[in-house]
């Protein structure tokens, strides 16, 4: 109990925040595209995007390992050109967290964008605004609650990931060991007290974050 290593907590927060940020950056345009398009391609993309919700995280982790490993084409390309190694690094943890969490971001944003009455968008077009302008002046303000819900769920899923992260990033102490893995690790080592402490910390941090997001949502509505 004497010295709790808080590295896993900070790593978890850093990894899940980065993953959430990337999920917004990548997920929103995809959600926008899926919402606008009725093509077969978009149906296919929609299906593939749902897959991470259904598949066991270990299966996802395995795919990522195969896809991004040092022996794979993508892995080698990243290493040669950007000096970036994915497997068994914090970057790998981010990728794993991103993949498991982005479906929530996309699904929720797509539903939110889809629930905007088309008349608003048509009005704005007729009044001369560009698509991009309409996205920021009409669509985002009208759909932000659904989008924020997606961000929250994404973040929660990223923070809690165990399987995919373990497969891709491993559990190297002080390097890639995130909170959920640290908890499992201490339990395996028979350190019940440590496991309890970490579980408590994890729970409190999650509670505080979710509470803050809720507050933020309320404040924006009133404002």
């Amino acid at each position: 109990m004497a010295d709790i290593n808080l590295f896993p907590l900070f790593l978890s927060l850093r990894v899940s925040l980065t993953a959430t940020f990337l999920a917004i950056l990548i997920g929103l345009p995809i959600a926008y595209y899926l919402n606008r398009s009725n093509s077969r391609l978009s149906d296919f993309i929609d299906t593939v995007i749902t897959l991470p919700i259904v598949l066991p995280p270990t299966v996802l982790g395995y795919y990522l390992l195969v896809l991004l490993g040092r022996n794979s084409a993508v892995g080698r390309f990243l290493e040669d050109n950007f000096n970036l190694t994915i497997v068994f690094t914090p970057a790998g943890a981010v990728v794993a967290a991103l993949v498991v969490s982005i479906p929530f971001m996309i699904k929720s944003s797509k539903a939110a964008l889809g629930s905007i009455q088309p008349e608003y968008i048509h009005s704005a077009e007729i009044l001369g605004r560009s698509r991009l302008n309409i996205f920021f002046t009409i669509m985002m303000p009208l759909a932000w609650r659904g989008i924020l819900a997606g961000v929250t769920m994404s973040f929660a899923r990223a923070l809690g990931d165990f399987g995919a992260t373990l497969m891709v990033a491993g559990s190297i102490p002080n390097e890639t060991m995130t909170m959920p893995i640290a908890i499992y690790d201490s339990l395996l080592a028979g350190d019940r007290a440590m496991a309890n402490t970490l579980v408590l910390i994890m729970t409190s941090v999650s509670l505080v974050i979710l509470y803050l997001i809720n507050r933020l949502e309320k404040r924006v509505i009133q404002g």
Binding site: Q117, E119, Y120, H122, S123, A124, I126, I138, P141, L142
Partner: peptide, 11 residues
């Protein structure tokens, strides 16, 4: 274009 429900931007 005056829409049936006027489509005034609510925000």
């Amino acid at each position: 274009y005056l829409f049936q429900n006027y489509a005034l931007f609510p925000h």
